[in-house]
Design a protein around this nucleic acid. Structure first.
Lengths: 262, 262
DNA sequence: GTCTAGAGGTTGATG
DNA sequence: CATCAACGTCTAGAC
């Protein structure tokens, strides 16, 4: 279930694209091309060797020989067109929302590779911010003893408060959770507190930033505003690290050999 | 300057990787693999058909048959290792800062494709936030008539003010430019105004958020704080669209046929 | 569909 | 090497 064309002429590449691009095949084209994009911004890329990938859901990627990121792309193409123009193969990918166009002009093609891939497994990721939210909701004591969770994702005019709680002295507690806290996290917390003060004018309100790490500057910034910081251990947060590991044979080893924490 | 191996046995894939992976070649492997990642977070991906790309700068991508995004990746690999284990080919990519590991286990390989790509052209993008700054500096009237630019990137304790200006009534104007404004943009503007009020206690100060679009919630949030919003037309902003177009033959057509704005 | 907040965000500039 | 802001950010979830 795969086809390879070495040094094809451009017209036959066009035929391959017509045949396969809008069906569930991955089509890869390696060749010399220029790329133009217009949509939310505009970009142009003069001729050079790249590989272009059309995925089975019509995602389009233009990758150069270096870098993690594609040079140009289309997360999802609504409409392809392929034509010859002045001896070049022109591929146009259109998207309707937002309205964006990527035009690729091939001057030559070294290789076309068509295949169909089957992959129904989902990627499982742990360690997101939401994992911290859930850990706090399940075990509020990892932030503070006798903390009582009132609401998660409480809406205010300034946005959503991650965790809204009451402490043992019946003060209101606004908790902002961040994996990578910065300056803005403090501002955000600060604004939430302003909103809560408006909503509960007679109550004492505390603000806590919860994060696995923090820089001194951000701590200073917090202290200036009488806000608190609680460091959380990600090992406490990822609720089933061991279980997670055991679900796959290689991961036990992965967990020990490749351990990155100290 | 390219090599293709169809349905190679895993041991010979390992040899290819040993030969090419750490040299300036793009190595692509299509096959059935599982992937584990550990670093800032953890992820696991059970066996399925994907293609793995090792770029010339040792960037690593694992792409499934769908989606713009890679399933797993390593922007830059500091250290590769390739070994056979229990009849599987194990590729380990390590990065030192941050400390992260991607492990790929191939159960079978359909295709290996090795090539060297030459691409020294730079991608040129227009329409970034800085282009809006420049447009305002060059033509302040696109924000407001008789606006007088005082300073760009004016430094304050709260950060850099995009554009600092004076209006026709000699009020001070703080302009924050965003392509995609949100709540935080308003907070930022707000904070700059606080700083300017400290610096010029006797002056009237206006705050304007300039953006090509905005949501109602953010407008409300602005209005509550007596701040203003000016919508900017990106067509007015990209300063040399025609010139930009003419730098490449196909782009004139690109500009008319593929025009995305109304 | 729009809006909002997070991401293994990534990347580039700056001190 | 850390900090900070922008990104054609993308993506997922809620409304």
């Amino acid at each position: 279930m795969e086809e390879i064309f070495k040094n094809p002429d451009l017209e036959s590449v066009r035929e391959v694209l017509d045949n396969y691009a809008s069906r569930p095949f991955v089509v890869q084209i390696t060749g010399d091309c220029s790329v133009n994009y217009q949509g939310r911004a505009k970009s142009k890329l003069d001729a050079g060797q790249r590989f272009v990938i059309i995925k089975q859901d019509n995602a389009l990627l233009v990758h150069g020989p270096e870098n993690y990121q594609p040079k140009n792309w289309q997360p999802e193409t609504d409409e392809f067109s392929f034509r010859m123009d002045s001896g070049q193969l022109v591929l146009v990918s259109r998207r309707f929302n937002p309205k964006e166009v990527v035009e690729i002009r091939f001057e030559s093609v070294e290789l076309v590779y068509v295949t169909r891939l089957v992959d129904d497994r989902e990627l499982v990721v742990r360690g997101h911010e939401v994992d911290i939210h859930e850990a706090i909701e399940g075990s509020p004591e990892i932030v503070e003893e006798d903390l009582c969770i009132v609401e998660r994702e409480k809406e205010t005019d300034a946005g959503f408060i991650d965790v809204f709680a009451r402490d043992s002295d019946d003060n209101l507690v606004v908790i902002e959770v961040k994996r990578n806290p910065d300056h803005n996290s403090v501002l955000q917390l600060s604004r939430y507190i302003d909103e809560i003060e408006k909503e509960f004018p007679s109550r004492e309100i505390r603000g806590i930033l919860v994060a696995p790490k923090i820089s001194d500057n951000v701590v200073n910034y917090l202290e200036k505003r009488d806000l608190e910081f609680i460091k959380i251990d990600m090992e406490d947060v990822i609720p089933s690290y061991e279980k997670f590991s055991q679900t796959q044979s290689s991961l036990g080893q992965f967990g020990s050999d490749y351990r990155t924490e100290d």
